[in-house]
C-alpha cells in the first residue's frame, strides 16, 4: 500500500517538477510548483513527519508560493513576455543536469545503506518531539535564525520601498 503510494507520489513529484521547469507560462510554473510541494508533503506524511508536512504546506504553499504568485501577477508575466533560451542551450542544460545526476549517483554509489532496526519510534515527527528538539538542542540556531529574519526583513524593506 505505502509502496504504491510512494510510487504515485514520486511520479507526481517528478512530473510537477518537470512542469515547473518546462511550463511556458510562469503562472503554470508557479502552480506546478505548488502541486509539487503538496506531493512532497505527502512524502513527509509517509515518512512519519506529520508536523513537518503541515508546516511545509503552510510555509511553502501558503507563504512562499503566494509571494511568487503575487510577484508574477504584479509584474504581469505571461508566456508572451517569457524569455527563452536557445534550444541548444536547453539541450545542454538537460544534458548537464543529467550528467550531474549520474555523477552524483555514481559518487554516492547507491548501494544498500546501513541497516536500520525496526520498529522505529513512530512519534518522531510529532509536534512534541520536534518541538522538544527545537527548543533544547537547537535552541541556539533557533535564536540565531531570528537574526537572519531581521536582516532579511530590513533588507527587503530597504530594497523594495518606493522612495525618491
Amino acid at each position: 500500500m505505502s509502496f504504491y503510494l510512494f510510487v504515485i507520489l514520486s511520479v507526481l513529484t517528478l512530473c510537477s517538477a518537470f512542469a515547473v521547469v518546462l511550463a511556458k507560462n510562469p503562472m503554470y510554473s508557479v502552480l506546478s510548483l505548488i502541486v509539487c510541494f503538496f506531493t512532497v508533503a505527502g512524502h513527509y506524511v509517509l515518512l512519519n513527519a506529520q508536523f513537518l508536512a503541515i508546516v511545509h504546506i503552510i510555509v511553502y504553499a501558503g507563504a512562499i508560493m503566494v509571494l511568487f504568485l503575487f510577484v508574477v501577477m504584479l509584474l504581469n508575466l505571461n508566456s508572451e513576455t517569457e524569455p527563452h533560451k536557445d534550444n541548444m542551450l536547453k539541450v545542454a542544460a538537460v544534458i548537464t543536469g543529467g550528467l550531474l545526476f549520474v555523477v552524483l549517483i555514481a559518487s554516492i554509489k547507491a548501494t544498500e545503506l546501513g541497516t536500520f532496526s525496526l520498529p522505529q519510534k513512530s512519534n518522531l515527527g510529532y509536534v512534541e518531539e520536534v518541538g522538544k528538539k527545537l527548543f533544547t538542542d537547537y535552541l541556539l540556531p533557533f535564536e540565531i535564525s531570528s537574526v537572519l529574519f531581521l536582516s532579511a526583513m530590513i533588507g527587503s524593506v530597504v530594497l523594495a520601498k518606493k522612495e525618491k
Binding site: F18, V21, H84, K85, A93
Partner: peptide, 14 residues
C-alpha cells in the same frame, strides 16, 4: 537535478 536543470534551462529570474 531537475531543480538544477531548471536553473540552467530558464532565463526568467522568477
Amino acid at each position: 537535478c531537475i531543480g538544477v536543470i531548471g536553473v540552467l534551462f530558464r532565463r526568467n529570474a522568477i
